[in-house]
Design a protein around this nucleic acid. Structure first.
Length: 367
DNA sequence: GCCGTTACGGTTGAC
DNA sequence: AGGTCAACCGTAACG
């Protein structure tokens, strides 16, 4: 077979990505959209084989394998935390102590804090933060104590992170819909200034979930800001896991709002916790949808809706409703496969699952 | 043909 | 402010 060059897709709609051997669109270095991840797990739970899922969703089998393995292990469909580094000296305990010192004496100097960390035995001479690190901690993690932010106030009460890593990290999806439903006009990589919320970075992507799924939320300031308005802190990574997720809301059932939240902020929404427990999350993992002609994972304008199957994790008993993945993928051969050689007798449910993926729209095959 | 694993080129974000 | 680096990503290829 011919050598396959990943095609670089760049749309007039300001989306881009590459096309894999299966015709699916992906963005190198970035996780698949949660919608796809969810679909993978969903189909697997219907008994559809990974190889078929791979073909159906046009995701490499290695990726399907990885996502399913992770799901089986952690119960989470979400990708891991991307980027950052584990704190070397800025441990939660150190931050906590610094906060206390600062609260007790708002005028305290960084060097005094440093001395106190040593004196109190919080740190030893080998791991005590530098003065500059302390300054950064004060600036970035503690901020103005007279105006405690949600994150800190929320976190303070608990030794565990209240949230996973990234609930509010908006990418500026070039083709993402603005809160008003209008397309963002910013070119890739250029933070949009149109919205009330400053988008920290541009994320040119063909995976704009918003366009695939019609999710507005990536650009929705209120959604982006979430309840906290602050990103979770990296130092909590180590303890961020399913056990740390509050299960208050989670009745093992994830409803549409949860899915939407998921799509918006992959790991952060507490509503997600029941099925995305394991995320140590990087704020940035979400991008959207695959709009490339080759990929066309989801038809723009559709909203992700919970209407189909429910997802349950064997080990946790969690379940979720999967939204329908509107994917005008070209299932030329998949339809054939199903017709000709069902991998195994598919149940009616399985057929429905597949057809929900297949038959949505025409293969655009515009690539 | 299926699937687990891994090299690779890429992104991310705390330090 | 900007570079570093270790985390992650999905694909492609191998066995």
């Amino acid at each position: 077979m011919a050598i396959h060059f990943p095609m670089f897709v760049f749309h007039s709609e300001q989306t881009y990505g590459e096309v894999n051997q299966l015709g699916g669109v992906f963005v190198n270095g970035r996780p698949l959209p949660n919608a796809i991840r969810l679909r993978i797990v969903e189909l697997a739970q219907l008994g559809i084989r990974p190889c078929d899922i791979s073909r159906q969703l046009r995701v490499s089998h290695g990726c399907v394998s990885k996502i399913l393995a992770r799901y089986n292990e952690t119960g989470s469909i979400l990708p891991g935390a991307i980027g950052g580094s584990k704190p070397r000296v800025t441990t939660p305990n150190v931050v906590k102590n610094i906060r206390e010192y600062k609260q007790a004496d708002p005028g305290i100097f960084a060097w005094e804090i440093r001395d106190r960390l040593l004196a109190d035995g919080v740190c030893d001479k080998y791991n005590v933060p530098s003065v500059s690190s302390i300054s950064r901690i004060l600036r970035n993690k503690i901020g103005n104590l007279s105006q405690p932010n949600h994150y800190e106030s929320g976190k303070q009460a608990s030794p565990q992170p209240a949230l996973p890593y990234n609930h509010i990290y908006p990418y500026s999806y070039p083709n993402a819909m603005s809160p008003t439903g209008t397309k963002m006009g910013s070119p890739p990589g250029v933070p949009s200034s149109a919205g009330p919320v400053s988008i920290s970075r541009g994320w040119p992507s063909a995976h704009t979930v918003s366009s695939i799924l019609g999710i507005r939320a990536f650009m929705d300031p209120t959604a982006i800001a979430g309840a906290e308005g602050y990103p979770p802190k990296m130092e909590d990574w180590g303890s961020v896991n399913r056990a740390t997720f509050p299960s208050a809301h989670g009745v093992n059932g994830i409803d549409k709002s949860a899915i939407e939240a998921d799509l918006k902020y992959p790991q952060s929404s507490s509503t997600l916790s029941s099925y995305v427990p394991a995320c140590a999350y990087s704020p940035s993992n979400q991008y959207g949808v695959y709009t490339g002609p080759a990929g066309s994972y989801v038809s723009p304008g559709h909203h992700w809706q919970a209407q189909g199957t429910s997802l349950s994790h064997p080990s946790s008993g969690m379940s979720m409703h999967a939204g329908e993945l509107h994917s005008p993928m070209a299932f030329k051969h998949t339809a054939r496969d199903v017709d000709r050689k069902p991998p195994s007798p598919l149940s009616k449910q399985q057929h429905e699952a597949l057809s929900s993926v297949h038959g949505l729209s025409h293969p655009t095959s515009s690539s």
